[in-house]
Structures are given as structure tokens and as C-alpha cells.
Design a binder for these strands. Sequence first.
DNA 1: TTATAATTGTGTCTTAAACACACTATTATT
DNA 2: AATAATAGTGTGTTTAAGACACAATTATAA
Lengths: 233, 233
Amino acid sequence: MSYYTHSNRILVALDCIIFGFDGEDIKLLLIKRNFEPELGKWSLMGGFLEEDEDLETAAQRILYELTGLKNNYLEQLQTFGSINRDPVERTISVVYYALVNSQQQDINAINAHNAYWINLSDKPDLIFDHNRMVEQARQQLRYKAALHAIGFELLPEQFTIPQLQKLYEAIYNRKLDRRNFSRKIISTGLLLSTGEKDSRSATKKGQLYRLDTTNYQRYLNDYMSFFPELTLS
Amino acid sequence: MSYYTHSNRILVALDCIIFGFDGEDIKLLLIKRNFEPELGKWSLMGGFLEEDEDLETAAQRILYELTGLKNNYLEQLQTFGSINRDPVERTISVVYYALVNSQQQDINAINAHNAYWINLSDKPDLIFDHNRMVEQARQQLRYKAALHAIGFELLPEQFTIPQLQKLYEAIYNRKLDRRNFSRKIISTGLLLSTGEKDSRSATKKGQLYRLDTTNYQRYLNDYMSFFPELTLS
DNA sequence: TTATAATTGTGTCTTAAACACACTATTATT
DNA sequence: AATAATAGTGTGTTTAAGACACAATTATAA
């Protein structure tokens, strides 16, 4: 095998923004660093790209190390590469964000990494450019939710429409009208009624739905709206 | 300065997808390679990240080398990092896409690189994973255009509404109703009438507009539509 | 057991936007 | 002066958004 004669090989890191939802607030899984550099400060979960790994594989590995979760929703956000973003050594970071159902995590793995679920609205200051990463991920989440009914990965497999509404209200930090929300969501045809009711509710038990994953794939390609006239048929 | 003990430093490339528009079709600026590897095949314009460069700086440099254009619209798309994507050596590529007004380019620089403007619909097979990169960029363009009136960077500074419509029709490969298009675009409040008329037209000369760049910045943050109720005020 | 508070589910009216369509105006060419 | 090509505007119908009110369910407390 030949090589490029170029010499500027550099370190490639990955950082994961891990979103969760507790029914009320959007959460972030953050690490209180008990290691150098920046010991004692808050950061995202990260790691380095290995020789034999694809980017997404590496991101899944890092997510797994922290949460014990496999095959999670994971999407590449952006790559950050300012010259001095890492004070130790020039490093570029490929950033992924994950949507996880925080009920299913591995508590031991999280504790071992000194990680904590923190309300997005209470996010502490993070090291390096991690604040910018989180801000951009939040924007991306809003962006996608503006075009699609998304975020089901943050909910339990079965959920009620009011629960989904709370998720949207948390994403946008804004109240929505219950009746219009319900009409809109149902009109997407993405929800399948399970026939069951939410037993955990303390008052009237809501109807449980689950996502029609087959339809969902098609629906995600259907992103017209500035020109609804173009809506794919 | 200390260093991470990690040893797997790797080569970081950048590739640029350069979009243009000739009034009828979306164009791509592609290179017929007269250098190794893959001599004789088509590819995107690329280069390697230097030690003293930010990612965006490097992408701008690569764009400038090819087109002679500076300060162009340039946006990071994604980073591609499959293990064997480059047969010469493990390389990850940070991909940017540019929207350029193909009237203003430097013909000599383009010729020197053996580059050609090619209709997106006639795109030849490209090397490595460049086909996937282009496909994703095309999707991204549609995605953005679904939420916003965009793509002004592809047009001359002054343009008519029918010209803008042709751009949209090229992006979506679909005909739009002239009257509804006009109403919709004008309702954004983004177009400023210049009072002049398009002298190049062979028939009735259309009214020339330019983009209200001040309003445009605000408008781009305003991306609600799945839930119009959330529209930022 | 029956009120109460909290929440879920559905109906409807008004307003605004999407959509489909038709006519008039301008300009180079013949 | 007629023609072909394109630009510009108006209007009615249909659909969706947005605002609002009432009825139903269930745990808890009186």
C-alpha cells in the first residue's frame, strides 16, 4: 500500500451529545471529569477514533461505554476543528448526537464515568467548544422537529399524545394547544393505537400509541412545507 | 505543550461540492483528474487540512484555488470516515458545499484544474464516496429550501421572480405555479424591488429584485412550519 | 359515596393560506 | 401590425391553522 506524502496527520476525536427526556424536561448526559485534562470540569462524553473504526462505529462505541446502550438513534451533527479548540494538541472532533430513552440505561456504567443527567436548561459551562456543540445540537433538534414529528426515540415504546406534546413543548420551551396538537399529530398517520391505556397516570388514563415505523421512514423523506405545493406524493 | 499519548493520528481531507445555476439547471463543478490517484476519473475538488488552518479556512482555500472566488457561501455538510473510503491511506474527509454565482469565477483557475461545470442531472460517476457526498448535498439543498427561501447565492445580485422560480424548479425538478410562487415569495418580505428591469430578457422584461440581507438573517432563524403555531415572533 | 382536582378526549367556528385557474401587459421578431 | 414568448395580477374554492368549550375518566380527600 502506498501513502500520501502529506505529513499533517492529526488526532480525530468524537464527542457525543446525549439527549434524554424525563416526561417534563430535555436532559443531557454530562460527565464531571475525574481525569485530565480539565479535571473537575463538565464535558461531553468523548473518545478518539481508532484505526479500524468507521466514524459511526466509534460514536456507537463511545455511547455504549457510557450508557450500556447499543443501536441507539445516533446522528452526526458536525465536525469542529478550530486550531486551538483542544489546548493539549491539535484535535478535530466529529460530533454526534444521540436520542436515548433514559429508562433503559446502564446505571453502573454511568456512575463509573461520573456522569449525570442534567436538565438542558440547567446545563453547566462545559470545557473546550462543547458549549457550542450542545447549542448546535439543540438547534438541530428544533430544526428537525420543525419539519417532522420526531423525537420518538426519547419516549418509551408506548406513549400517549399528551406525553408527546410535552416533549415538543420541552424542545421549543413553549406551550401548545392540546386540541390542535392532537389533531395535527393524528393527521400524520404515524401513530398506531395500542388499545391500552397509560396505567401510570394519576388521573384520566390516556390512550397509548406506538410509532408506525414503516410509515415513519417514508414520512421522514417528505419534508416539504415552505412550498407545500411540492409535497411528495 | 503536552500531547495525548494516543497514536492514531490520521489524515484529514476536505472535499467541496460546488453548486452553480445557469438559469435553467443546477450545475456541479467537477474535476477530471489529471493526477493520481484515480487519474482520468471524475472527482470533487479536495485537499488536505494543514496544521495551521481551521476547517472552514481550509475549505475556503480549496474553493479559492479552484474558482478564484473568496468569501463564498460555504457550509459544512458532513464528515465521511469509512475505513476504506480512500484506497491509498486511511483518510477522513470533511465535506463542505458551496453555492457560487458561476458568472464570477476565474476561468483560468478552473481550466488549470481541468474542472468543468456539469449539470447535476448529468453527473458522471465520481471516485471514492464522492457520489454519496453529492447526493447528500443535494438532499441538504432541498431540505433547506423546504424551510426557507434560499439559494440567492446561486443567482446574480439582481434577479427576477421568474428566475428565482426556475431555481426552485431546478432544485426540486418540478414545475411550480407562477402566480402562487410570486405571491409566496413576495409575502416573505425578503425581496427589495430595485426599480430596474431585466434587460437581457427577449420578451417582456421582468422586474429586478435583490435580497434584503438584513431581514434574511432574521428570517433564516425562523424555521417553524410543522407546528406553525410555534412560529417565532 | 360523593365531591374535587387534574387530566384526557373530542367538536366547532373563524380566519388565513393553499391551490387552481384566466386574463392583461410588454417586447423582440416577422 | 400580427405573432410568440414571457411577465404580472386577480379571484373563487378548498383545506388547514388557530382559538375556544364542553364532556369523560380517575385518584384522592371530604
